[in-house]
Design a protein around this nucleic acid. Structure first.
Length: 587
DNA sequence: CCCCAAATGTTTTTT
DNA sequence: ACATTTGGGG
């Protein structure tokens, strides 16, 4: 007899309880390292195992990366055909496409195009002077469904209408439109017997990141028999600046009744020390009641430096030491403190703003320590994607008028002459061959990166995936298999775990960021401290050169909240003083 | 209206 | 440091 593993295997009682709630909506509060994704994937598998039709289960995330990871993890529990894992935006895209009259298409525009069209419209209306402000305002208003612009100034109302008319005329949708239009279509369809959806279960990950418009869409997606599972952690809500509202996690319990609430309290990643420190940062308003089940005894070490270069140098030295590097210092100190040798991939250096990563990267480079740094996608890549999307849409006869106008004029001519031939080739050619032709057409150097990007774009488009929703530059995702230290922003570190974390630039005005929302900034520090499973180093510099200006603000005052949980000095075992001093002179 | 110098801000990130 | 925006003068 073959014995199958159960989705409930290896779950603690609270996790297992959360997996098995079947008679109500479900809100799972899952702090750092409590097994959030594990519960979500186990629940999806368990529901399918219990006889819920996989086609009627929908798992929703906010990013393609998260969706991909969840798909993989559900796959590990045994493939469940028909179970859909998607993002809010991709779901909306497909739903709108399915609801439109035959012949109408949905073309998703990139942010760059969105801005370009907006300023074009603003110019036409003679409002270009304040176009930037108006754009931001409209972007904000579109985080809510339904969008209410009645109380806005005349200019905004006019601009909003003209912009939206322009898009509709050409069959274009910006990212917010996808959510708003899907919600509008759902609302119009109502929940009558012709209602197009019937999900038995909708599971939403990272619920603290949901925007009001997405929340409205979720409510409209839920029929009378749909049960919704929301998993998240309000203390890790760090995306308020892009429309996320963590209060919607509270709201969920009121709107989705009856609702079972389960808090996962066993934290597997962090030593209690780290959880206590992170909790103290948040203040008394919402003390997370987490209990560490890690057998590590964590230490938090705070180091102050005269300037940011000393800070970077110390971090580089310490990494070298932790990894058993070959410098004198690592022989003297590393072995003396009896530290476990760590691999470079066990280490992350975090900072509040990407700019701070430069100095660290420079120093690591100098020290010959391999590292990878998370960088934002280059505009040239994004422009290439836009070009490809335009061309594909033209060859596919979607919103041609608009897309042709966006191509270089020489190309427009070529297309008019050789359109049918191109159309034919586009449908039949191998992706690799297609990539070569496209590169030649646009005059790109066909280096491996561009070749890969183009091929992937061709394949994705043929699968019916809009490039603006499906593709991102590969480079912006770090590869944690590779033997290198990871340098990333605190935001980029959310959801990740490292044995050793350096939190750098912990200075007044930087952490918490002076212009940020204080509560969110504190949650950011909470996120940073809870990335580590064994060792945290917090560093700050008395003087820092930033954007050509030198500031001397000193250590962040929130660190005082950590009190006795922090060791001011590392427990250095001092011996062979003379020898060490002499060796230092060599550098 | 256009051009150049001066002033002004600089997070965080996904779709 | 550096890109972007503003404002004044031609």
């Amino acid at each position: 007899m073959i014995s199958y593993s159960s989705p409930l295997d290896h779950l603690n009682p609270l996790q297992a309880k959360a997996v098995r709630v079947l008679d109500s909506h479900l809100l799972v509060e899952a702090g750092p390292g409590t097994g959030k994704t594990r519960v979500l994937t186990a629940r999806a598998s368990w529901l399918a195992r219990e006889g819920v039709l996989p086609e009627s289960i929908l798992a929703v995330t906010f990013t393609n990366k998260a969706a991909g990871e969840m798909r993989d993890r559900i796959g590990l529990q045994g493939t469940i055909p028909g179970l859909e894992v998607t993002t809010f935006h991709s779901w909306a895209y497909r739903f709108i496409s399915s609801m439109l009259p035959a012949g109408d298409t949905v073309t998703v525009i990139s942010e760059a195009e969105q801005k370009r069209i907006f300023s074009e419209v603003a110019k036409r209306l003679g409002l270009e002077a304040r176009a930037r402000d108006f754009f931001d305002r409209l972007q904000y208003l579109k985080q809510f469904y339904p969008v209410s612009i009645e109380d806005e100034p005349e200019e905004i109302r006019l601009l909003a209408k003209e912009y939206s008319d322009y898009l509709r005329r050409h069959g274009l949708y910006d990212y917010d439109d996808l959510i708003l239009s899907a919600a509008a279509l759902l609302a119009a369809a109502g929940h009558g017997k012709d209602f197009p959806l019937s999900y038995a279960h909708i599971l939403v990950d990272e619920f603290q990141d949901i925007s009001p418009a997405q929340y409205s869409m979720l409510r409209l997606m839920s029929g009378s028999t749909t049960l919704v599972t929301a998993i998240g952690d309000q203390n890790q809500a760090i995306y308020g600046f892009r429309g996320a509202d963590p209060m919607l996690m509270e709201q969920f319990r009121k709107d989705f009744t009856p609702c079972t609430r389960i808090s996962l309290v066993h934290a597997y990643r962090c030593p209690q020390q780290f959880l206590d420190a992170a909790g103290k940062v948040l203040g008394s308003s919402s003390p997370p009641k987490l209990e560490s089940v890690s057998n590590q005894a964590g230490t938090i070490i705070l180091k102050r430096f005269r300037d940011y270069e000393k800070e970077a140098a110390w971090i580089a030295g310490r990494i070298d030491q932790i990894c058993g590097g070959t410098s004198f210092e690592s022989f003297n100190q590393g072995t003396a403190t009896g530290q476990v040798m760590r691999s470079l991939s066990d280490i992350a250096v975090l900072y509040r703003i990407n700019k701070l990563g430069d100095a660290i990267a420079e120093r690591l480079e100098k020290a010959g320590i391999p590292f990878q740094i998370s960088s934002k996608s280059s505009t040239s890549y994004m422009k290439m994607l836009d070009m490809l999307q335009h061309l594909f849409d033209i060859l596919d006869s979607r919103a041609e008028k608009y897309h042709i106008s966006r191509l270089p004029s020489g190309l427009q001519e070529d297309l008019r002459n050789a359109g049918p031939v191109w159309r034919d080739r586009f449908r039949t050619l191998e992706a690799a061959t297609m990539a070569e032709m496209l590169a030649q057409l646009f005059g790109w150097d066909l280096d491996p990166d561009i070749k890969g990007l183009t091929e992937r774009a061709v394949r994705l488009y043929r699968q019916g995936q809009p490039l603006s929703l499906a593709i991102r530059e590969e480079q912006d995702h770090l590869d944690f298999q590779v033997e290198a230290v990871s340098l990333l922003s605190i935001h980029a570190s959310k959801g990740l775990e490292f044995p050793v974390v350096f939190l750098s630039g912990c200075e007044q005005g930087i952490i918490p960021w002076k212009k940020g929302d204080m509560d969110e900034e504190l949650r950011l520090l909470y996120v940073a401290l809870t990335r580590a499973s064994e060792q945290v180093f917090i560093t700050c510099a008395a003087r820092r050169r930033l954007w050509g200006r030198t500031t001397a603000t000193g250590c962040s005052s929130v660190l005082e909240r950590l009190g006795g949980l922090v060791s001011k000095e590392p427990p250095v075992v001092k011996k062979k003083k003379k020898k060490k001093a002499r060796q230092k002179k060599l550098f």
